[in-house]
Design a protein around this nucleic acid. Sequence first.
DNA 1: GTTGATAATCTCAACGTTGAAATAACAGCA
DNA 2: TGCTGTTATTTCAACGTTGAGATTATCAAC
Lengths: 166, 166
Amino acid sequence: MNDAVDLLMTQWARERPDLDVWPMGIMGRISRLSRLLDRELKEFFAPHGLERWEFDVLATLRRSGPPYELTAGALNKAAMVTSGAITNRIDRMAARGLVERIPDSGDRRSVLVRLTERGLALVDEVLEPHVANEARLLASLDPRERDHLAAALRSLLASLGDTTLG
Amino acid sequence: MNDAVDLLMTQWARERPDLDVWPMGIMGRISRLSRLLDRELKEFFAPHGLERWEFDVLATLRRSGPPYELTAGALNKAAMVTSGAITNRIDRMAARGLVERIPDSGDRRSVLVRLTERGLALVDEVLEPHVANEARLLASLDPRERDHLAAALRSLLASLGDTTLG
DNA sequence: GTTGATAATCTCAACGTTGAAATAACAGCA
DNA sequence: TGCTGTTATTTCAACGTTGAGATTATCAAC
């Protein structure tokens, strides 16, 4: 089965036969997959009244365990966005009552962001169907392929230095 | 070697042992890789005076072959963005003299976007080092791993219906 | 205890995308 | 020829992020 990147590479082979564009076979696919999958997740979360970035923040706090709080800095590293973006996200989510800002008694420069009861209930309600939806999107891979794919991606991520969540 | 997604999945295993979150091992990695690689490409193009989206448009036109022109619609499908984004991109690139708008004599609703000499020269100058930079980013994978990874990603992309460039 | 360097967050203007509405042109057909 | 439905592009306000600077707090060394 061919995909859009095969077509793209065929075009390069014709136009620039002097170049071996093999890296595009991986880079191009990661980029296109990321866009396609983002769209799917957006569609999934919309009926739940959530933006994807909101779910990401909720999930990051949820999986950190009780008391479901992290500093703003930890959140922005986990989300791979800038500090300005996290301030903005926390503002909006606090306005919706999903998280609350708590002063960090240990370090007054820091702000702790804590899941409210409402935020906790929402993420726990959405989590299982979300994972099921992700499984649906990956259903074309059999279990062996999944493991190999995850392993290859892990090795690439680690080689690029992505070894901590913040 | 572990990566950030291993940590994330460990947290879920502790907090929600009832759920098998295996899909995150693939979805999370594609998402994080896409961000990391985007940053790297941005850094690569900056010294060449190019934004990543500019290079994408130039490359799409270049690989389509002489006369290096495509409709605005073909460009927005290839770039996976909306029509509004493409109008904006063409405006800016035309202002920089990298592309020009040509009326489509066959269909007056369409606009053909054509690489200028300057745009052609620029993309041909940047292409080889760009591919070399991509190869550097993927250098941790040996040739067999590359092929397997590309094949798994192709199969996933194709299963999601990404089989044409526009 | 003051100084200087570092760190965490917030602020805000610039940027680019989205999504929907507007405009213009095509195609088929009565 | 005149309708009707569809397609291609542009327009534009709303949205969220970036990137840099401002603010406030910490820490180590003097």
